[in-house]
Simulated scan of single mutants.
Amino acid sequence: MAKYSKSDGVRRITGEDGHGWTPGDGRSWVRDATNGPVYVMEKRRKNLVDESPDTGWYLYDDTSNGFFGEWCGSRILEAVDEANRLIAETEARHEGD
């Protein structure tokens, strides 16, 4: 399971796969992206108008992989593990492209 850590005064969440997430703007966490796509987990409240069916953490990216509001979990540590799993699956599918 993902866990919190702190180094050089910066809070991080590190997933089981070793990918780290740092605090973003507002209620969000950003996955470390060294020369790669940017992934963001954003805390959203249930709102059927903007297609947020459940309160929790939603995954977004800046690529064409299609993560635009993918629900990952109600608790951040569980959501980080689910987001990393979804990202790994998507990247494996797109490796041959």
Rank of each mutant, 00 (worst) to 15 (best):
M1Q: 06
K6E: 15
K6M: 15
S7E: 15
D8C: 02
D8K: 09
G9V: 06
G9D: 10
V10G: 09
V10I: 12
R11D: 15
R11M: 09
R11L: 11
R11T: 15
R12D: 15
R12S: 15
I13Y: 09
I13V: 07
I13H: 05
T14I: 14
E16Y: 07
E16A: 15
D17H: 00
D17P: 00
H19C: 01
G20E: 15
W21G: 04
T22P: 13
P23M: 08
P23W: 08
P23L: 02
P23Q: 13
G24K: 12
G26V: 09
G26C: 13
S28L: 02
S28R: 07
W29V: 14
W29N: 07
R31W: 00
A33F: 06
A33R: 00
T34H: 14
N35W: 07
G36E: 08
P37C: 11
P37S: 04
V38L: 14
V40W: 01
M41Q: 12
M41Y: 13
M41K: 04
K43L: 09
K43N: 09
R44Y: 13
R45D: 12
K46R: 10
K46D: 11
N47F: 14
L48A: 04
V49C: 07
V49F: 01
V49M: 14
V49P: 02
E51C: 07
E51L: 09
S52T: 15
P53Q: 05
T55F: 10
T55M: 13
G56M: 08
G56E: 11
G56I: 08
Y58A: 03
Y58D: 05
Y58N: 01
D62M: 02
D62G: 10
N65F: 10
G66S: 06
G66M: 06
G66P: 11
G66L: 05
F68S: 14
G69Y: 00
G69A: 00
G69R: 01
E70Q: 12
W71E: 11
G73D: 08
R75V: 03
L77R: 01
A79Y: 01
A79L: 03
A79S: 10
V80T: 02
V80H: 01
D81S: 04
E82P: 04
E82L: 08
A83Y: 05
A83M: 05
N84I: 01
N84D: 09
R85H: 12
L86H: 01
L86Q: 15
I87L: 12
I87P: 02
A88F: 05
A88L: 03
A88S: 12
T90P: 01
A92T: 05
H94G: 03
H94I: 10
E95N: 12
E95W: 14
D97R: 06
